[in-house]
């Protein structure tokens, strides 16, 4: 049986205590939220900690609050989010993104904060200790080489969060608290495009909540590409948020791609192709095509990199068709979940 390494465990009772415990030894302490990413990583010995600080008992990090500007506690489980009627009404695209994360039996434990802080992933990295020894390690952990691109000076592990591209697209923010104080930053600033140092938060900061903007007339959606109908991480995610003017012209567009870079990747060319335009067959196609060049899909997930890059255009177009109320393309399943084989 794969087992965890030794560590000590402390359950924090409130945010202040969590921050204080973390501040004692920020490098060797890790926060335990749902544990569905951290614990497998620790079992495979590629994340390490001498002490885990459990956040389960921190009451004011759970739950969904507010009306026009909703706040979601970082410890809110993914399944709580998918069941929340108000979120379903206001941000169905967010609920859809969360519902696409892994599997139902994992979403009961996994949290939204955990999904945002998800370690970057790579087929050379998410392996057992023995496997990584057999390739001599990789840059993200114990080696010098990024096997995805051996001459590259950087690590190309990918951001595999499903919620991040959507939250970036709608302009959500996160609250970070530490013994030094607290700050609220846009979700996209939480990420750094680097496979090794992928979070723009300090080691001593606790992500306590996600702040959703007022919906106003924003329409947002998330399209996920993965092999199976469940369990799988995204090999491509598209978070798109649009606002339309009186004549159906796009006045605001934010499109973020997931799983093609070490951070959610903005697709400004696609956004530019839409601004001022109505959503028509031609404009959504153009915006999709514009995304193709943005994605740097590499050989670090399921599927081939060339095909993933080609699919970026199809998936961006699919998301925009949905937002624009255009008929789905032939054979494209309308519902993003539950479709057999590859689902969007």
């Amino acid at each position: 049986m794969l087992r965890l390494p030794e560590f000590s465990f402390v359950a924090a009772r409130d945010i202040g205590e969590a921050c204080a415990l973390l501040a004692e030894a920020p490098k060797s302490t890790r926060l335990l939220a749902g544990g569905t990413d951290l614990l497998p990583n620790m079992k495979r010995r590629h994340q390490h900690a001498q002490r885990l600080v459990g956040l389960r008992a921190v009451a004011n990090m759970r739950g969904i609050h507010g009306d026009s500007e909703m706040r979601v506690g970082a410890m809110t489980t993914l399944s709580t989010i998918t069941r929340d009627a108000k979120l379903q009404r206001h941000w169905p695209g967010f609920v859809r993104a969360v519902q696409s994360i892994s599997s139902p039996v994992l979403r009961t434990t996994g949290t939204i904060g955990g999904n945002l802080c998800l370690d970057t992933r790579c087929n050379y990295y998410n392996q057992s200790e023995e496997w990584r020894q057999a390739i001599g390690g990789c840059m993200k952990e114990a080696g010098d080489i990024c096997w995805v691109a051996p001459s590259s000076p950087r690590c190309w592990a990918i951001s595999a969060s499903d919620s991040a591209p959507l939250l970036c697209a709608i302009g959500a923010r996160v609250r970070l608290v530490s013994v030094r104080g607290e700050r609220v930053i846009p979700v996209e600033q939480l990420f750094v495009d680097d496979g090794i140092v992928w979070l723009g938060k300090s080691d001593d900061e606790v992500l306590t909540e996600v702040l959703l903007p007022p919906v106003e007339n924003t329409k947002a959606t998330y399209w996920k590409l993965r092999r199976r109908g469940s369990i799988d991480f995204p090999v491509l995610g598209v978070g798109a948020a649009l606002r339309m003017g009186a004549h159906g012209e796009v006045t605001h567009a934010r499109i973020f791609l997931g799983a093609v870079s070490s951070a959610p990747l903005r697709a400004p060319e696609s956004e530019a192709a839409l601004l001022g335009q109505q959503l028509t067959e031609a404009t959504v196609k153009a915006a999709g095509e514009a995304a193709r060049g943005v994605a740097h899909a590499l050989d670090n997930t399921d599927f081939t990199m060339l095909w993933r890059r080609q699919m970026t255009a199809v998936w961006v177009e699919g998301a925009l068709r949905e937002l624009g109320g255009l008929p789905p393309r032939a054979q494209m399943p309308e519902t993003p979940l539950g479709a057999p084989a590859m689902s969007v």
Binding site: S103, N123, Q127, S128, R227, R228, G229, S230, I231, P340
Partner: peptide, 20 residues
């Protein structure tokens, strides 16, 4: 090196209830 590309149940794709 020559290793199994992904010797685990996440990346060795066994169809789920929704793929059947």
């Amino acid at each position: 090196a020559l290793v199994h590309k992904f010797p685990n149940m996440l990346e060795y794709k066994s169809p789920t209830f929704l793929d059947m």
